[in-house]
């Protein structure tokens, strides 16, 4: 690992300022991703600003819903009484990811900011537009069985590996951001991650030095009718081939509002807006679920080895919706 300067920040504004002041500086929270990348020489910061001492780990109810601190640990978030009772979908999604050791370390902010696990991104001997902009994508002609089917570009076909992010996308979350100049701003969670386009190296909506402080999840009526499905190569401790977060608000057997997001299929948690729109006002039947899934996957484009993901995604959507009802 390359040498780096280590410092501790005591407040968000100070941390943002410190990182913004050095283009090679990075934030350190749980460390489960950044340290791995540094050991592989994929990430090469010369300064780490430890933000674990910042008071951004509360989980509390607000008039609009719930505020979840960016520095709360994944384990604490999944097990928090407010989350368990009102947002079980979020608990499920967090618990579907990683191992308990990693969830004990990982923070919510770090989880949604984690890097792709693309083999070619990790292999510094091969080309990768994310690691070295303009060098080319090795995955597009490589072993791409686990890669994207939606929203990819010729520059990058990697997928976002987070489970938690899929639930946050489905739950209309907002992201509070500390800016380097001391101000703050708020963006919808669905805008935090970008599709790769021609700049996969710049696929988050945060400028260098900007830091997530908390997530706001609005009140909803999904708690009794939500479910997270994760399909993977192993039964546990494995990234998703396809995952689906589904949440329904029902009036009898009629769907009032539907929220669906997919993981493992794109460089961002894929909100299934088309499927949601189709389901609003319709009966909660398997037939309608299948039509919604069909509609959403219309724009899917497979790579050489991952055509199976299209059918798998459709079936996962149907299964998540059936379990949600």
């Amino acid at each position: 690992m390359r040498p780096f300067k280590y410092s501790k920040a005591t407040n968000a504004a100070g941390a943002a300022k410190a990182v913004a002041g050095n283009k090679n500086a990075k934030f350190l929270s749980g460390g489960t991703n950044i340290l791995d990348l540094m050991k592989e020489d994929v990430a090469r910061p010369d300064e780490l600003v430890d933000i674990n001492g910042i008071a951004s780990s509360q989980i509390r109810s607000t008039p609009a819903g719930i505020s979840v601190g960016a520095l709360a640990k994944n384990t604490d978030t999944a097990n928090h009484p407010l989350v368990r009772e009102n947002y079980p979908l979020l608990s499920q999604a967090i618990l579907a990811g990683a191992s308990e050791q990693i969830r004990n370390m990982a923070t919510n902010g770090g989880n949604v900011m984690q890097q792709v696990r693309c083999l070619y991104f990790y292999d510094t001997a091969v080309n990768c537009n994310r690691r070295e902009p303009g060098s080319g994508c090795s995955a597009i002609v490589g072993l791409n069985r686990t890669y994207a089917i939606l929203g990819w570009s010729e520059h990058c076909v990697a997928v976002n590996p987070s489970d938690m992010a899929v639930a946050l996308a489905a739950l209309d979350t907002k992201v509070n951001i500390q800016m380097a100049d001391g101000k703050t701003r708020t963006i919808p969670f669905t805008e935090l991650h970008r599709l790769p386009g021609d700049a996969p190296h710049d696929d988050k909506a945060l400028a260098h030095g900007e830091m997530i402080t908390s997530f706001e999840i609005p009140k909803n009526k999904f708690a009794a009718n939500s479910y997270y499905v994760k399909v993977r190569d192993r039964a546990s401790y494995s990234f998703a081939l396809v995952s689906v977060a589904a949440a329904l608000e029902l009036n009898g057997k009629t769907i009032t509002t539907a929220r669906i997001a997919l993981g493992g299929v794109a460089n961002k948690p894929w909100r299934a807006f088309d499927a949601e729109k189709f389901l609003a006002g319709k009966a909660a039947t398997k037939e309608n679920f299948e039509k919604a899934a069909e509609l959403e996957l219309k724009s899917a484009r497979p790579l050489e080895f991952n055509e199976y993901k299209i059918e798998l995604s459709k079936r996962a959507i149907v299964r998540a919706l059936e379990k949600a009802v």
Binding site: Y6, L28, G31, T32, L35, D36, L48, T75, E100, Q101, I102, N104, M105
Partner: peptide
Amino acid sequence: RRVLSCLTL
């Protein structure tokens, strides 16, 4: 809490 000491500075 159980953690991974290899990824803990």
